[in-house]
């Protein structure tokens, strides 16, 4: 089992004293940053499949540890042989691991749910994007989006569109060059922290100097080309 108990225990009570590098190496922590970014960005960001899988694999090994230890604690003979002090340590470790598992599960769940909520709001847009360029939605998200949109369309049809003139029944029409497909608001403001010196950014008629570790409030469209160099906060 490749569960790093020491690091979990060492990290207790040291909140805020970890360096940024230490803090960002734990998969759940890195996923948390993506979750925050996903919440703030107006459209879906790159899917973090590997990172998510890493967190899920971690969850599994945490759960294995919990099951194993809980079984030991049920075994009276084994408990007696441990001695009072060791038993207390084992119980504290167990509690810590349980807490860590809930935390990791929450981050992974929140990340997935945030993306799905975004898909729910603009399903036709993402389906259209998926056709023209691959990779915005993951496979499971595509399946979800596809199914929910079918159900939604059929509900509209049964609810009222079937009583409409045929030429008005579409849900993706472009009458008079106005598309029915809603698109994300790329001009939404976001707060970003810059990771490397990017230099001067021209936004409309204004120029902004982006320096490392600076925090800026900018329109998403202005930084959308520099997403690798900034953290969305």
């Amino acid at each position: 089992m490749n569960l790093d108990l020491e690091s979990i225990i060492n990290s207790v009570g040291r909140r805020g004293t970890r360096t940024r590098a230490e803090y960002t190496t734990a998969p759940a922590q890195r996923l948390k940053q993506w979750w925050v970014a996903e919440r703030m960005a107006p459209h879906l960001l790159e899917y973090q499949l590997d990172l998510l899988n890493e967190v899920i694999t971690n969850c599994r090994s945490l759960r294995d540890y919990i099951e194993e230890t809980s079984l030991t604690l049920l075994d009276e003979a084994a408990v007696e042989s441990l001695g009072e002090e060791t038993l207390r340590d084992v119980k504290i470790k167990l509690l810590l691991v349980e807490t860590e598992l809930e935390r990791a599960k929450f981050v992974a769940r929140a990340y997935k749910r945030t993306r799905m909520a975004k898909i729910d709001l603009l399903p036709y847009y993402y389906l259209q994007q998926q056709e023209s360029q691959s990779g915005i939605m993951s496979k499971d998200e595509w399946v979800y989006c596809h199914h929910r949109t079918e159900l939604e369309a059929s509900s509209y049809y049964k609810g009222f569109l079937n009583a409409f003139p045929t030429e008005l029944q579409g849900l993706t029409d472009e009458d008079g060059h106005i598309s029915m497909i809603e698109t994300p608001d790329m001009d939404k403001p976001v707060v970003v922290r810059v990771n490397t010196d990017i230099g001067t950014l021209k936004i409309g008629s204004e120029e902004v100097e982006l320096v490392k570790n600076g925090v800026y409030l900018l329109r998403f469209s202005a930084v959308s080309d520099y997403l690798e160099f900034v953290d969305i906060l």
Binding site: V55, I56, C59, R60, R63, T99, E102, R103, K105, F106, A108, R109, A110, K112, R113, M116, D140, V143, Y144, H147, R148, L151
Partner: peptide
């Protein structure tokens, strides 16, 4: 039914679980 399917794909993280941080 769609939800049940999605949930099954992510059994480990309980997708329909609480959205309040633990």
């Amino acid at each position: 039914e769609v939800l049940v399917n999605v949930k099954d794909m992510f059994e480990d993280i309980d997708l329909t679980g609480s959205m309040d941080p633990p």
